[in-house]
Simulated assay, not measured.
Amino acid sequence: MEAYQVPSEAVTFEEEIKKSRFITYLAPASGVDMAKLFIQQVKDQHPTARHHCWAFVAGAPHDSQQLGFSDDGEPSGTAGKPMLAQLMGSGVGEIATVVVRYYGGILLGTGGLVKAYGNGVQQALKILPTRTQVPQSEYQLVCDYPQLSMVEKLLQQVGGSIVRADYGANIQLVLSLPSLHIEQITGKLRDVSRGTLLLSPVE
């Protein structure tokens, strides 16, 4: 799992084509639920618009499990698919887009619609600020109380965090760690603890 770009904030792009107003919204969406919430918010913002077409890549850029799109009443294949194609071509993950159309009375034809919806997303992507997302995985680690500060120091160095800590006879931790560096982190823990600190993946 490699690092990838994600939106650092939402952007809007607007244009008029043959009297129809097209407003493109792009926003961060880490997960399908967040994408759907964003789509609903845009619909609520524009209750009188004729169409609210949307697409999302709610996980890593090549995670086909978290893709979705809708033509929302436009002819099949003329809105959602070209919008999704732009998102997937950008290599940006955890992103959702909605294009709101206020119909201006002039038909654009299927080719015109594909161009309008695809181009709106393309232009919005050009102005989208992004940041690098490093995929994280969760691991369990059991440590003694004197070892905790050592573990915390290592987490700071590698960009990991403690998700949960249960304090008993020893400390049972659930850690979120960058997937790319697991072998390196495992090795460091082993070295600093003389082999007593061992990571195990959370099932």
Rank of each mutant, 00 (worst) to 15 (best):
Q45M: 06
T78G: 11
Q66T: 14
A55K: 00
T110R: 10
G109S: 06
G104S: 03
T48G: 09
A85H: 13
M34P: 07
Q65C: 15
M83D: 04
T110P: 06
M88E: 05
R50N: 11
K36S: 14
G89C: 05
K43Y: 12
L107D: 12
S90T: 05
Y102V: 00
G59Q: 05
L84Q: 00
A58L: 14
L37W: 14
L87K: 03
G68N: 12
H46I: 03
Q40G: 13
M88P: 05
L108T: 06
I39S: 05
V98C: 14
G120T: 14
H62T: 07
A85D: 15
A96P: 09
W54H: 15
P75K: 09
T132L: 10
S64V: 08
G112H: 10
L108N: 08
L108V: 11
C53S: 05
R50Q: 09
G112Q: 09
Q40E: 15
R101A: 06
L67Q: 10
K81H: 10
S70K: 03
G91K: 13
G105Y: 02
K115Y: 01
I95H: 06
T132F: 14
E74T: 01
Q133D: 11
V42D: 02
Q122M: 12
G105N: 06
A35K: 04
V99D: 00
Q40D: 14
Q41N: 10
G77M: 09
M34D: 14
L108Q: 11
Y102P: 01
K81P: 06
N119Y: 11
A79P: 02
A55I: 00
R131M: 12
L125Y: 01
Y103L: 07
A49R: 02
I39E: 03
A35V: 07
G118N: 02
Q66I: 12
I39M: 09
S90R: 05
A58S: 12
Y102I: 01
K81L: 12
M34V: 10
V99W: 00
G89W: 02
S64Q: 12
G104W: 00
Q41S: 10
